[in-house]
Design a protein around this nucleic acid. Sequence first.
DNA 1: CAGTGGATGCTCT
DNA 2: GAGCATCCACTGT
Length: 190
Amino acid sequence: MPKALDRRFFARSVHAVAPDLIGATLLARGVGGIIVEVEAYHQTDPAAHSYRGRTPRNAVMFGAPGHAYVYRSYGIHWCLNFVCEPEGSASAVLIRALAPVGGIAAMRRRRGVEEERLLCSGPGRLCQALGITGDLSGLALKPPWFELRAPPSAPEIVIGPRIGISVAVELPWRYGLKGSRFVSRPFGRS
DNA sequence: CAGTGGATGCTCT
DNA sequence: GAGCATCCACTGT
């Protein structure tokens, strides 16, 4: 696999990129942490926003890999995805949880909670903690908006079904860092 | 703990 | 008008 988290890293199958993101560090303007939970969404997958074709909302998914796709969830929250695969394949990885590392004071201020455990454990929470909104959708996953660092070593990965969807619920396309207390919900026994 | 329901706004049919 | 890739508060054990 490509070592640097550059455009070539993202121009692969979501099923290759998703597990490779576990253990990587994500920072948004200096605030962020270690990615401990993600989910893969493929264009042929009924749960993917791009499944029914291109619309104004999902247009970024149809663009170049290595860019952020940010959408509003339930009218309240924002969710961050990384666009993957060759351009036009409209597939992405949803970033679901981080272990906080940098800018924890800013996270606490934005989230309005003290407990470190609750700062970035969930797709809506981590966007609030990192100050990510729809304004960042379509931007490249590189400075000055984002910084990504590869994991220092290959972490142990756990796999399970995705969360919060009503179709394709059986597909095991959720990936987590084994033993992390920062995942949004527990994985099954491993 | 588990389960339920409300908030809230936008997208697509 | 329906349905969300969510979170939080509140209920009842």
